[in-house]
Amino acid sequence: MSSAFCPVKRERLLRMAENIIETNGLTRNYGDICALKPLDLQIPEGEWLSVMGHSGSGKSTLMNLVGGLDRPSAGSLQVGGKDLLALNEDGLARFRREFVGIIFQQHHLVPYLTAVENVMMAQYFHSVPDEAEARHALERVGLGHRLKNRPGELSGGEQQRVCIARAIINSPKLLLGDEPTGNLDHKSTVMVMELLKELRAEERFTVVMVTHNQEVAGWGDRTIYLDDGVLVREERMR
């Protein structure tokens, strides 16, 4: 690797090892609407970042860009040392399955598959389905007794825990949550957050989580506030 001897590149490599996400002037326009104004953001590896802001402020847009679901209109975006702008659609899909676990607000699960099978779906896209491992993952999120139930037969909190199991099954480096507790009552919220914290301690993934809830944001290391696509404030918890 000749690049190792090039001082500039080496510096970038080193920085990358620290920052799992790096954006430079990251912008996303929807026609005339500018959902995300040029944004410079660094997220160190292992950090738990909370993203707050009122509705329509561009939080989901940021999540989708970072998770490789969407493409920026301008700027640069590096996730885990990969330049996402250089990847094509299938390359992004491959990036997602290896690198990112995503949890949504509406617990998007495949309705006709059981809890275990929903987890196995992620395994299938990643490599090969392995039922024992999927079952173990569900047991870890406390759903050992709900393996064979369809999403329709599970409560909101339980569904969200299936989503968490699915998100972590491929050992991602980055866990994204787009208001994962938005639809949950207080008890379930606490339960889910506890679970995430526990898992992070074991698996050491980076968390980026959008939330409306100040208390939920409090679980993180750092909180950023977006307003109209602009980063307006940053707050470090510890």
Binding site: E89, A93, R97, M121, F125
Partner: peptide, 16 residues
């Protein structure tokens, strides 16, 4: 379409 979007989001390529 939601299910399809989900499959793509969790890492399925368009072909898969």
């Amino acid at each position: 379409s939601k299910e399809i979007g989900l499959m793509k989001a969790i890492g399925g390529t368009r072909w898969e």
